[in-house]
Design a protein around this nucleic acid. Structure first.
Length: 483
RNA sequence: CGGAGUGUAGCGCAGCCUGGUAGCGCAUCUGCUUUGGGAGCAGAGGGUCGCGGGUUCAAAUCCUGCCACUCCGACCA
């Protein structure tokens, strides 16, 4: 068999990172472009990943006392205009619904019916602060109604100029949490708590190392008092904002009227927060974990944690399949998400399919294994070097450990790469030289650099943005190119 | 919205400069042989060449208008 070392994905990351990214998504069968500009079709394998992510995070927020609810897709135009900065921030990317009926035009083609023009247009939600706030204003009467913590899993739409699958699409899936509190301290604390939930989720489930910090004023969410972020670093050296939480102070309460009677009997405005993560995180996982053979799924959220490939010959099909089924059942019994790949395909094709999809552990079962009660397994992140054969029971006993180890190793590897790509500099000139030299990654510098008269020029020239004021390095700012 | 590029079979591309029967690789289907890291041979199916005008006996090819997508910027999760 021809076995020249070939990568499953062309081009390689080195050759053309953006193209590699697209090809990984295609090869793993996660998503494809849609007939609608800027939107994507999430295919079953990609959606399975999202569902697992949802499942984990949904559990986490419920432990924080958050309740799920659902608010409408359409928002009255007037709602959006309530908060001044909010309008400013979103007006230019809102899709607007203006009619409620179609009719045949003179040319026989369907068109919006003039007679069915809406008096007040609706906006397709770019985010739901205003419409949820409207409900909160009615639901909250007394300090006894607080805190109120709501979340919804939904789609939102922002008319983006330039889209990229998962990273930036006009329509995307996310969760948006909206909490209301009695005091400013509680709201501030809450926004930091939700950020910590994001960090925990990203690092301990997606194996994405992130830096937590606060956004600078210019990067703040429209209408927020403070915006907090988790920033991840992709393999090409660009940063990705993977989740944000906002302390909205009383800005939205004031403009929407979320008032309550306080303990002293006086009327007060609630303090609110909002926080969200989206399908964008999937893009981050691809760009942090993927290699030149495709996706690598962190075991904790992998759609399939183990794939079993039966190596069937003409004379042993029944024996091998029976044994493979037994192994699959035993794994399922342990709560492992296992896929027995019994499709009628060449085994080598199934193998590459499993590799490109990034299935965490691959198990090969052929005549030898069936005969001896063994399994042969390989970890996706380590490749064929990690191939080993052992008794089925021994494998079953350690499989959870193996998955945990892989999860930990993936985070560790990503962290090492990330830390390597953070450079400290002490002047703007040094920073400029760094990026002029093509530095891939973060540069850490005294936050006062932002007062430098030449700061704007340098940032613009190298398309840099301040990613955050990291909590772990007071007085510093992290600067990088970003998605 | 600027700059660049690409639209030809499911996917990736050649053909265009110099107009003349629409091709290649992979995938698909059939048969046989194979089978532990991308199998071999033989055969088969599959196309309004992005869309509309124009030039011409003749257009994937030349002219022209439009559309879509991708990349790089500006904007943003």
């Amino acid at each position: 068999m021809g076995k020249k070392p070939r990568t499953a994905i062309t081009p390689t990351r080195e050759e053309n990172f953006p193209e590699w990214y697209q090809q990984v998504i295609k090869a793993a069968d996660m998503a494809e472009n849609s007939p609608v500009r800027g939107c994507m079709i999430i295919k079953p394998y990609g959606f399975a990943l999202w569902e697992n992510m949802q499942g984990v995070f949904d559990g986490m927020i419920k432990e924080h006392g958050v309740q799920n609810a659902y608010f409408p897709l359409l928002i009255p135009l007037e709602f959006i205009s309530r908060e001044a900065e909010h309008v400013e921030g979103f007006a230019k990317e809102c899709a607007v619904v203006t009619h409620h009926r179609l009719e045949q035009g003179a040319d026989g083609k369907l068109q919006p019916a003039e007679a069915a023009k809406l008096e007040e247009p609706y906006v397709i939600r770019p985010t739901s602060e205003t419409i949820i706030g409207d409900s909160m204003a009615r639901w909250i009467q007394s300090y006894r109604d607080l805190p109120l913590k709501l979340n919804q899993w939904c789609n939102v739409m922002r008319w983006e100029m330039r889209t990229r699958m998962f990273l930036r699409t006009s329509e995307f899936l996310w969760q948006e949490g909206h909490n209301a509190f009695e005091t400013a301290e509680e709201a501030r604390e809450d926004s930091l708590k939700m950020l910590e939930a994001y960090r925990h989720f990203a690092e301990d489930y997606l194996a994405l190392p992130v830096i937590t910090g606060e956004k600078t004023e210019d990067e703040r969410f429209p209408g927020a008092v403070a915006t907090y972020t988790i920033e991840a670093l992709m393999q090409d050296g660009k940063a990705l904002q993977a989740g944000t939480s906002h302390d909205l102070g009383q800005n939205f309460s004031k403009s929407i009227g979320i008032k309550f009677q306080g303990r002293d009997g006086a009327e007060q405005l609630a303090h609110t927060t909002s926080w969200g993560i989206s399908t964008r995180m999937i893009g981050g996982m691809i760009m942090v974990h993927g290699d030149d053979d495709g996706m690598i799924m962190p075991p904790k959220v992998a759609p399939h944690q183990v794939v079993i490939l039966p190596m069937v010959m003409d004379d042993n099909e029944e024996q091998v399949m029976t044994y493979a089924q037994k192994a699959a059942d035993a794994l399922k019994e342990k709560g492992i998400r296992v896929l027995l790949d019994s499709r009628e395909m060449r085994t080598s094709d199934k193998m590459w399919d499993a590799i490109k999809k990034g299935i965490s552990v691959r198990v090969e079962i052929g005549g030898r294994e069936a005969e001896n009660g063994e399994v042969t397994s390989v970890r996706r992140d380590l490749g064929r070097e990690s191939k080993s054969t052992e008794g089925l029971d021994a494998f079953l006993n350690r499989v959870e450990l193996t998955l945990d180890q892989m999860q930990a190793d993936m985070l560790q590897a990503a962290k090492a790469k990330r830390d390597d790509a953070i450079k400290d500099v002490s002047s703007l000139a040094e920073l400029e030289a760094m990026f002029k030299d093509g530095h891939p990654g973060f540069v850490r510098i005294d936050a006062v650099v932002r007062n430098d008269s030449d700061y704007e020029r340098v940032m613009k020239e190298y398309s840099l943005t301040p990613r955050c004021l990291p909590f772990d390095d007071a007085g510093k700012v992290l600067i990088a190119k970003a998605y």
